[in-house]
Nucleic acid binder design. Sequence first.
DNA 1: GTTGGCACTCATAATATACGAGTGCTAAAG
DNA 2: CTTTAGCACTCGTATATTATGAGTGCCAAC
Lengths: 348, 348
Amino acid sequence: MRFDDRKKRILSAIVETYIRTGEPVGSKTLSEFPGISVSPATIRNEMAALFEMGLLEQPHTSAGRIPSHLGYRAYIDDLMMIMPLTEDEKDGIDALFNISDPDPDKLLSDCAETLAEYTGCATVAMTTTPHYVTVEHIDIVPADERTVVLLVIASNGVVKSKVCRLGFRVNTGIADFFRKFANDRFCGHTLKEISAEFVTAVSIQLGDYSNVFNPLIVGIYELCKEVYDGQYYLGGREKLLTYNEYSDRALEIMKLLSKRDELGPVIGNNPSGVTVFIGKENSLSQLSGSSLLVARFSIGENDCGTIGLIGPVRMDYSRLIPHLEYFAEKLGTLLSITYQRKTGDENG
Amino acid sequence: MRFDDRKKRILSAIVETYIRTGEPVGSKTLSEFPGISVSPATIRNEMAALFEMGLLEQPHTSAGRIPSHLGYRAYIDDLMMIMPLTEDEKDGIDALFNISDPDPDKLLSDCAETLAEYTGCATVAMTTTPHYVTVEHIDIVPADERTVVLLVIASNGVVKSKVCRLGFRVNTGIADFFRKFANDRFCGHTLKEISAEFVTAVSIQLGDYSNVFNPLIVGIYELCKEVYDGQYYLGGREKLLTYNEYSDRALEIMKLLSKRDELGPVIGNNPSGVTVFIGKENSLSQLSGSSLLVARFSIGENDCGTIGLIGPVRMDYSRLIPHLEYFAEKLGTLLSITYQRKTGDENG
DNA sequence: GTTGGCACTCATAATATACGAGTGCTAAAG
DNA sequence: CTTTAGCACTCGTATATTATGAGTGCCAAC
């Protein structure tokens, strides 16, 4: 049984119609398609063949056909026509990101929200930090009599700060001492290395001052952890409620999405470009009724995070895939404004 | 018609049973209540009286009664027995907040999430900044060749920082110049005053350097705005899906909650203690099927924010009110660890 | 004032019937 | 060999009908 051209056209028509209407597609409907000019009976024969090939399913005897997971897969891999974004569409998306001086974290959470609004799907946005990233510099800035701001700058350009209140008055001498101490002990170490044990070991080197400086040491640990863990934002989870596929599963999925531990590994380990997981292809059983689209984004050559869409299997792949791709690209571009590392160019 | 003791006991029993079961309560069920030892017929007479008084409603002729909004109001204001939290319960809540060195913003968002988990309601947590709060100090810290960290310290003790990348190399001279300039222009002004116009006016005073320093000036503006706007966090919106009251309204309510513009004013303007809005008492029409509990929290004497619960009108007020109150109290205590202002005590 | 008795209401569930979209198969036409 | 019309069959959905029972309101008796 050959997967000939007419079968392909019929499968495409079924997938596209089902995505649009949510109703099983029958032979009569298909016969009215422009590209398919044969009688319903012929189409029924073809559909029976496609069913044999595992590309279609039948909810019940007297209903039309819907695509199986394999059917979607064939459609996405071979049949679908991806429409490149028009310049107008690109401009529209660009306008959503029109912020003068984006804070990287805020940019990412905004992106999750915007992407959800734009696609009607739930979204995830997360960053990942490579294992080789090290602490490049630590600074401590007296801000108030008993308040300092602690800074950790990582080798990938990420800077995090934290306000620490101390039990004693801070003068420049103390600040200078601690700055030197902290930089000596932490700089050059990878973020991954800086565990609770590592920090304890450093702390005891302060001897009698160990207790006094403990809030600062802990602060450095927390900042390193924050940088290494990266961000994890969700957007538009409530969008799922608009699909009746989720009428009684929405709560379960919404809970799952907020579990970074579960979703993070699934989303974070993907090649560049857009990857599609259709229904049962998802490793998490709770997602078997959903499709997951993920796209990695990068700053220059450095892969640094993922954005993802979660929606019903019956989602508009041909529209969403290029849009997700463009969002990822845009995000990388915007982040590189903030994260471009120092270059040889030193004038200005 | 007197609102005598037996009527009160019957109303209480109806409210409590309805809250527990979600089903209209009938005379037979009530007759089995320990505190009510009269026959169903007598109870029916009393219920007819309570209905006349507007305290009960009847979904249809052959169903039991449910409390009207007035009925809930009477129950909450006069009849309900508030159970003070046991020490065990308090310890349980305290344990949820067991963080060594809380970041204030994170503390608030965690609180929203924890409170939702604890109560099964959707939650809001927000801070408000009084109009009189001023900029106390601005600092600029070179962190990297072209990177500085900008700090704004407000007179209420809130410190916010932001990383700024600049188009030129920063040395201590430039940093010192800008620090002095910024402090001269901004310190002492209320956060409210620092508008876009104010910032533009300051910027042009830099003359030829206006463009060069613009990212920093804008950064200060954004930080001031961030402090003045305060935080707004939501928690556990998906909890609403567990109540069938929301079966078809969940999306609408979930969208409403994320609109800070709409909910903020309603939640932010309340006296201290716990305030209860039952169903139609809410000024937002979308909340007419929900009840809203809000509690203000404060640092020392300074009122500084609100936490709120949103759930079905049929919520367990007698349990939730004291719990919300304790959460607010706890939050104030924990925040005061971070936000305690400098005192006369200078040793250490 | 309280209670048992009883007819009445009405939401819910269960059952029966009708409808129709869509199929698979067969046999005839191309 | 492919395509198509015809037709009996399936089965989910919609509609109508009936039964059930929880709960009420009212009345007369205690």
